[in-house]
Simulated assay, not measured.
Amino acid sequence: MPDGLRLVLRVTPNAGADRIEAIETRDDGTCVLRVRVRAVPDRGRANAAVLALLAERLGLTRTSLAIVSGETARIKQVAITGDPTMLAERIMALVTPD
């Protein structure tokens, strides 16, 4: 995306806490960002919690993010509007230990 990027997530709903965990390499070689949310996967609650968590942690408005695939699946693609370089740096900062 020239005005943003797409992020692939592996979402675990109904978790003990809302958190962004790590980048995980899956068996097929794809990389996903593991995210856990307390919300239940009912009527889009978990999806809304995922977007709110990402927006908060990335310092973006909620309207900058949208789920573009996987609404009812654990593996989701999220489109994020903004400068791709800045977004990539912020995402890496979330999963890199200090």
Results as ranks from 00 to 15, higher is better:
D3Y: 05
V50H: 08
D18W: 00
R57L: 02
T63H: 15
A66G: 15
M92S: 12
S64Q: 13
D3L: 01
P2H: 08
G70F: 09
T85W: 02
T61H: 10
I75Q: 13
L51Y: 05
A73Y: 02
V50D: 09
D83Y: 11
V37M: 05
V50N: 02
I23M: 13
T72K: 15
L58N: 13
R90G: 08
A73Q: 14
T63A: 15
E56L: 09
G44V: 06
T85H: 07
D27P: 01
A52T: 14
M1F: 04
P97K: 06
V50A: 02
E24S: 03
C31I: 02
T25M: 10
I23P: 06
E21M: 01
L54G: 05
L94Y: 03
P13Y: 09
G4F: 06
I75F: 13
L94Q: 05
V95T: 12
V11Y: 08
T30Y: 02
L51W: 11
V95A: 03
D28T: 07
L54C: 04
T72M: 09
A22F: 06
C31S: 12
D42L: 15
T25W: 04
V37Q: 08
E21N: 03
R19T: 04
V8F: 09
R45K: 15
T61Q: 12
N47T: 04
D3F: 07
A39S: 13
R74H: 13
D42Y: 14
R26K: 11
A55N: 11
R26S: 05
M86K: 06
E21V: 06
P84D: 11
N14G: 09
G59M: 12
G29C: 05
R34N: 10
V32D: 12
L51I: 05
T85L: 08
D18V: 01
G4M: 08
G16S: 13
A22H: 08
A46S: 15
L7Q: 10
V37T: 01
L5Q: 03
V32I: 01
G70V: 02
L51F: 06
A17G: 04
R19L: 07
G16E: 12
L5T: 01
G16F: 02
N47R: 11
I75V: 12
N47G: 13
A49I: 03
G82R: 00
L87W: 07
V8E: 09
E24A: 05
R34Q: 09
T25V: 13
G44N: 12
T63L: 12
N14Y: 04
P13W: 07
A49P: 12
L60A: 15
R26F: 00
P84G: 14
T30C: 07
M1P: 05
T63R: 15
R74D: 15
D83A: 14
S64E: 11
A39I: 11
V37L: 07
T25Y: 03
T72W: 14
V40K: 15
P97T: 10
D18E: 00
D98T: 11
D3A: 09
R62N: 05
R36I: 01
R45M: 15
Q77R: 14
E71N: 10
R38C: 14
V35F: 05
R90Q: 09
I91Y: 05
S69I: 02
R6S: 08
T30M: 03
V35K: 01
R90C: 03
K76I: 01
L53Y: 15
D42G: 06
A48H: 13
P41S: 10
I75Y: 11
L60Q: 14
D18G: 02
V95W: 04
D18M: 03
A66P: 03
G59A: 10
